[in-house]
């Protein structure tokens, strides 16, 4: 039940996209978002859509997986669509109606923009494991160290948090089962009753989270962890030919979009 949550879930596979360096993928994802946000013509939107679909095909992601990820955002999408539909000035589609032709155009474009934005970031998290992602981010943010920004600490915290999400979900599942076995009821009653019913889950969960944090700190210290100073990697990230190729492609696409914007 709880395990079914897709929270930017990683799907292990061995496609070209999966094998790319995480830094490449993060940079390309940013390029993608820039392209998407300065798209203002149907042609540009069409190109971004085609780009998204081809990367999806390359990384062998089923469209249904992305649709599943869109589900929690359905309200935001619907709201954006309605607001744009009714509050855009222009020629009404019929005399006296609040809906304008421009409104319809804007609404459709906004939906496309949100869906494509989510699809793009989903491709990143679907093809890159959380560990790779934080490693890549740490290396990309490395220049910020000069400004005394604790890059290593932040990325260590991020990877620890990511590492413990599944553990905590599993633990929650286990404690819920144990309390259900003692007759706890999480499914019926009003909101207040349900919130109260969660107490037997939350208390042991917090106790164990603190215990785990404590144990982890001791385990890290006893293996001589003392921050990022002079730390090396077991699997250093290496840029390969495919990465260079992908980055050049990304730069070309970005340039193309900017030229498109200036010309049109």
């Amino acid at each position: 039940m709880l395990k079914d949550i897709t929270l930017g879930q990683y799907f292990p596979s061995n496609t070209v996209v999966h094998r790319l360096d995480p830094r490449t993928k993060i940079v390309l994802c940013i390029v993608y978002i820039i392209c998407l946000f300065q798209a203002n013509t149907w042609l540009a939107y069409g190109l971004v859509l085609a780009l998204t679909l081809s990367v999806m095909a390359l990384s062998k992601i089923k469209p249904s997986a992305i649709l599943k990820g869109l589900k929690p955002l359905i309200i935001i999408i619907a709201l954006t669509c309605l607001l744009n539909l009714f509050y855009t000035k222009g020629t009404p589609i019929r005399e006296g109606w609040p809906i304008t032709y421009e409104g319809i155009e804007r609404a459709v474009q906004m939906i496309l923009r949100i869906v494509l934005l989510i699809a793009g970031t989903f491709i990143l998290t679907y093809t890159t494991s959380p560990i790779e992602l934080t490693d890549g981010l740490e290396l990309l943010l490395n220049p910020l160290k000069r400004l005394k920004f604790p890059v290593h600490e932040v990325s260590m915290m991020m990877s620890l948090a990511l590492r413990f999400i599944p553990t905590l979900i599993e633990e929650t599942d286990k404690i819920m089962s144990a309390q259900k076995a003692r007759g706890a009821d999480f499914e019926s009653g009003n909101l207040i009753q349900r919130a109260k019913a969660l107490l037997p889950v939350l208390v042991p969960l917090f106790v164990s989270a603190f215990r785990r944090a404590d144990e982890l700190a001791v385990a890290m210290e006893s293996r001589c962890y003392h921050g990022g100073e002079g730390r090396t990697r077991m699997n250093p990230l290496k840029m390969k030919k495919a990465d260079a190729f992908a980055l050049i492609l990304g730069a070309l696409v970005l340039a193309g979009f900017i030229i498109l914007r200036i010309l049109l």
Binding site: S177, A178, L199, V203, P204, S208
Partner: peptide, 11 residues
């Protein structure tokens, strides 16, 4: 049913 490590369910 008594789960494994049931002491972690005390609350």
């Amino acid at each position: 049913l008594v789960f494994q490590y049931p002491e972690y369910q005390l609350f």
